[in-house]
Write a protein that binds this DNA or RNA. Structure first.
Lengths: 328, 328
DNA sequence: CTGAAAGCGCTAACAT
DNA sequence: ATGTTAGCGCTTTCAG
């Protein structure tokens, strides 16, 4: 029943050549046309599939690329992962997926698993600070960060959406509508956005209106509800991701705040349901899938040297969740 | 800079024992208490991490479990994957993810990649018919199907939601509301559901009201819009998944059909946005995450013998998208 | 209880 | 151009 797989040795014998020749032919090395053809034919007849196991051990590295995201049930990371998979598939590389829950400790564990597997290329949405990555990077792991960078790790190439521009655009749009008390509802790893938020708002910043949730949906809801209750005077909110936006919509509804009459809402990340919502949500679209694809590309093309990162454009898509400031 | 990893040999030398002893100690084999302790101490000092590469080659199988889903950007499969990851993590096993796009050919390619990697355990939402799996299964791949089964492969254990019961409940609910012209908007691999749909509806079935989309969002929208245009006399629709439900809402809005006044809608799969929609969508909830977790559990616990599958309950969650039949 | 030794399938020197 | 050979790091007989 469960017979041994065909090995390179079987092919070599059947073709009457040495194993090295088979190896060369199959990896595009030099060989006489006729030998090449014979080997190829025999390999096909025997339905020979080179084992990645042997190759990996020999080369002291597993092919394949590791992918670490905070939460695969989040539409944004789902699309990001899809981009990575698309690129990896075109290169015939397997993808090992791990989730971190935006927790530094879990991230470290997942990295350990990848290392143990011999993975030497990884695309990650970093959860912990840069230090966690220190030993990993020094051990030769080719790393590309996606969507955000780790504090104090400017040396790792990263593929990011230009959410700084996104924040500016959103804030300008909101202030242009007359809003003055604008809140930022953030998630893990959004320090950079918040600093732009502060800059753009200038004298209008109100630190109490900047709140953070942890990764979970519950935490997001709690943060949103808390914000709306403590500061009923705010008139607009910028949600830092689709789960945060979802929480904001839910919390607003719970507190009988009408969108956009009582509260204007802009959400980072354009998800399909943003259009189904009523009112349809005004969003800052981020090219999640592209981010993943580009990051995978970088990590694959990295021929030892460190590639430069990329900054992808965001876009404000105006729908119906923002209106002029409510007159008190 | 890029120094060699610590190997089992290094540990053996440092501890003054043979490599075999180190191997035994680390895999819980027999050893004298003092030897064991010494080895453990040295291993810890050297920060030794066994390489999966060597172990895999020796055992002619990669650890790790393969996961094949149609589309990782679909919330349902995202949750399913999350379940698999949760179970795999608790077992310390890596997960190799591949997407099939519900295409048999791509599925075959992904299987080939997994096999080449030496993966011998896979959880899959099968796309192709059962025959594709024939050679794979005979080659000793431990397989568990999730969410649906492959035609003519009753021999593979599967973890399914009881969507047959779900369909019955939904149809009964709809007919109870007075509906007679009820449509089914289906996706790939939903034959079993449709057969129950026909059964439950009995004399009421109208074959023209049963339409199928391929996997994509576009295809789903086209199917929904086509259905609503050709048969404006229908009063209720059962959407076979969240993307189909989304398409139905969109198409209904486009054609100015009011939900639930003109059209009652029930969607398979309870996604977060179902509640944000207006009206909030009545759904048949499916335990996607559980399905993934249980499937992974089965594939891991499978000690050679073939485990039995599982049938998980679904639940009708009534919200606001269904109403009494519109009086013509 | 422990160590020596034989590979797992493959690639990369090194010969020829 | 091609064959021979030496491992990659690990587990597993097989002796002792």
């Amino acid at each position: 029943m469960n017979m041994r797989r065909t090995t390179i040795k079987d092919v070599a014998e059947a073709a009457g050549v040495g194993v090295a020749t088979v190896s060369r032919v199959l990896s595009g090395g030099s060989a006489s046309p006729e030998t090449r053809e014979r080997v190829l034919t025999v390999a096909a007849q025997l339905d020979y599939r080179p084992s990645a196991l042997g190759r990996n051990l020999r080369q002291r590295r597993s092919g394949g690329i590791g992918l670490l995201v905070p939460d695969i049930t989040d539409s944004f990371y789902g699309r990001l992962a899809d981009g990575v998979l698309a690129c990896a598939r075109s290169a015939g590389e397997p993808v090992i997926l791990g989730t971190t829950g935006d927790d530094a400790e879990r991230e470290a564990e997942e990295i350990a698993v990848l290392l143990e597997q011999g993975v030497d290329r990884v695309v990650a949405v970093p959860a912990g600070n840069g230090e966690i990555w220190e030993p990993t990077l020094r051990s030769g792991l080719t790393t590309v960060f996606a969507h955000r960078l780790a504090a104090g790790r400017q040396d790792v190439p990263a593929v990011l959406a230009d959410d700084r521009a996104g924040v500016r655009t959103a804030v300008d749009y909101l202030t242009g509508l007359g809003h003055r008390r604008i809140a930022y509802l953030g998630g893990p790893g959004q320090d950079s956005r918040v600093s732009v938020f502060r800059q753009t708002l200038g004298a209008l910043v109100d630190e109490e209106l900047i709140v953070f949730a942890r990764g979970s949906r519950d935490s997001a809801y709690a943060a949103a509800a808390g914000l709306f209750q403590h500061r009923p005077d705010l008139t607009a909110v910028l949600a830092g991701g689709n789960q945060l936006g979802e929480a904001a919509v839910l919390a607003a509804r719970e507190l009988d705040l009408r969108v956009p009459k009582d509260l204007s809402l802009i959400m980072f990340d354009d998800v399909p349901w943003a259009e189904l919502c009523s009112p349809p949500l005004t969003v800052i679209a981020e090219p999640a899938q592209d981010i993943g694809y580009r990051a995978a590309e970088l990590v694959l093309r990295a021929g030892g040297r460190r590639p430069r990162g990329a900054l992808l454009p965001t876009e404000l898509i105006v729908r119906g969740s923002c209106g002029p400031r409510r007159t008190q």
